[in-house]
Design a protein around this nucleic acid. Sequence first.
DNA 1: CCAGACGTTGTT
DNA 2: GTCTGG
DNA 3: CCAGACGTTGTT
DNA 4: GTCTGG
Length: 229
Amino acid sequence: MCGRYANALSARQLTESFAARDETDGVQPNFNVSPTNIAPVVVIPSEGPLAGARLRTARWGLVPSWARDVAIGNRLINARAETVATKPAFRAALRARRCLVPATGYYEWHRADGARRGQPYLVRPADDTPAGLAGLYEVWHPPSGGVLATFTVITTTAAGGLEFLHPRSPVLLPQASWSRWLDPCVNDPEAVTGMLGPAPAGMLRAYPVSSRVGNVRNNDPHLLDPVVV
DNA sequence: CCAGACGTTGTT
DNA sequence: GTCTGG
DNA sequence: CCAGACGTTGTT
DNA sequence: GTCTGG
């Protein structure tokens, strides 16, 4: 699944990699993105005079428009590709508010039989290019006023070769399908769910990293470093 | 009809 | 907002 | 996802 | 054991 990830790129690097206009006020790299964190996402708004992709920030954990409490989003950090088109919390966003979640890689905890704690791994593209995770975003109006953008990461069956780690993986969209995934004119659920397959074997590599990543207060580039276990 | 839920993952 | 359960 | 809290009363 | 916060 996907409950923690890293984004090592600056706002400037993200705008180049994703061909997006920066609307974030210069978001910083985050090597330990956890649920409820504000993180950059790439979207194409369906309204407005300017065409093209934008880099914006949103809170991880999708809060549906009808929610009364932001805490609902704490458990909606992932959406299953198999059911996202029909779930009340996600289907509106699937039609109209898809996004890319830029990631250097995501963390997976591998718990051996009977082990108390899992060994964290970093899973990242084998060629070290930035990943675009398939995401959905939503705009929520808190009772107290204001507006909050939130997002979730879509999961599917494990990517090729990563079955040993976990039965699920986040969807990594190939660069060739980024623009179609984001295109707000595409609103046929079947057309978009068709893009949500597992990555083929060889596309990703996974290696153990420091258990320091478990504590959300730790956030530095060395969290990406391989360790020997 | 109204009231209340609306989700994922993993573990048992 | 929309569906499910009573 | 993991880490850390998890309660009440009364007093300041 | 289970929930909340990050």
